[in-house]
Amino acid sequence: MSGQDPFDLPEHVESVVGPLSRRLVVNRRGSTVWDVRTRRGRRAVKLGYPTPRHAWTALAPAREAAILRQLTAPDEIQSGDWDGGTWSAQPWHEGESLFDLWGPGRHHLRPAAPDLAQARSCAVTLAELHDRGWAHGDVQPNHFIVGPAGTRLIDVALAHGGEVPAAYDYRYRGCLVHYEAPEISRSVLESGTAVPSTAADVYALGASYFISATGWRHVDYPDAATREDQRRAVVDKPHRVVNVPGPLGGLIDRMLSRSPADRPSSADVSRELCDLL
């Protein structure tokens, strides 16, 4: 949690969104997210605010909204400013995250063979984003929502590939280190920033498959390690042995290659998984 009470919807946001009911989903790391029911359907309403370590989180909802307007129907996206930062509203996607879906088969030593159709649906969704010229920059298993309408890749506030208003833009400083590729961690350690790439997204997808199937992070480091120490481990240490059974294990191993040029593309991953079905 963020250590403070969640921010409620400001009055002017309520007037735009028209909530009938709301449910708190997230309140941490500079973001409060509500699942809001409206006459137009369910909406994910995000309030961004600065944290002591990161001012950019206040801009994230508006930056994400600018990207979503380029990827989806623009009239489905609403955004603006509020006293604490920026806000956005977008369609709610019903389903379960990849991490939750694979939970019943997750075991550190003897994981069950993952569902290849679900794995492929995540790769297809990522490949579609890449085909449109975007790198996601924050691929993780909780950002793949598998539901009745298909698989959605959410949380694109760190994506790169199109125009973003200067007032809401900010430099990319990496993502959750559990899924960072070595070249991203190295760049953040050396300069404080990095450039998202499709190859790094593929690495993150491989790390997402691995942790969802086994419960292990792709690289071993203590739970209490600082972000800097986590990134040094990603840069300096080999990834864990991929013990995921079935054909997905070998594919994950290639996705976690230290060299971006040696990784399959997201389209390659999708095709290989299709051939396995």
Rank of each mutant, 00 (worst) to 15 (best):
P245H: 08
H239C: 12
N243W: 04
R28F: 11
G85S: 11
D253R: 13
P165K: 10
S266W: 01
E96G: 04
P114Q: 04
S208K: 04
D275V: 09
V139S: 00
R29Y: 14
A73C: 09
S2V: 06
E190C: 06
W92R: 07
S208Q: 05
D229Q: 15
A204D: 00
L129V: 02
W102L: 12
D83K: 13
P247S: 12
A233D: 08
A65H: 05
E96I: 04
I211G: 01
D275K: 12
L71H: 03
C175W: 02
A166E: 15
V188H: 00
R231A: 09
V195R: 11
R40W: 11
G162K: 06
R186K: 11
P148V: 10
T151L: 03
R240W: 08
N27S: 13
R29F: 13
V177E: 06
A167G: 09
T226E: 09
R254S: 10
P52L: 12
A113E: 15
F7A: 12
L256P: 00
K237R: 15
H108V: 14
V45F: 06
G48Q: 05
E190K: 10
A213F: 03
Y221V: 08
T86K: 05
A112D: 10
R240F: 07
R22M: 15
A157F: 10
T86Q: 09
D131F: 00
W82R: 08
T226K: 10
A112I: 02
A204L: 03
A65P: 03
G250V: 08
Y170K: 07
P111E: 04
V202E: 01
C274E: 15
D81W: 14
A135D: 01
T214P: 03
S121D: 09
V25M: 13
Q140V: 04
V36T: 09
W34Y: 11
G161T: 04
V164C: 08
M255L: 08
D220S: 15
I184V: 15
H107Y: 05
F144R: 02
P19W: 09
S15I: 10
H239R: 11
L273R: 00
T38L: 09
I211R: 05
V45I: 11
S79K: 01
T72G: 07
L24Q: 10
A204P: 03
R263L: 02
G246I: 03
A194Q: 02
P196Y: 03
V177A: 12
N142D: 15
I67Q: 01
E76K: 10
V146I: 15
E180A: 11
R63A: 05
P104K: 06
V17A: 09
N27Y: 09
R42E: 12
L24E: 11
D262V: 05
G84E: 14
D100S: 14
I67S: 01
A261W: 07
E272P: 03
E11P: 06
L158K: 05
Q90H: 13
W134Y: 09
D8G: 14
A225V: 08
T125P: 00
V244D: 02
G3A: 12
A73Q: 13
E180S: 08
G3N: 12
V25P: 01
H143P: 02
N243E: 12
R171I: 07
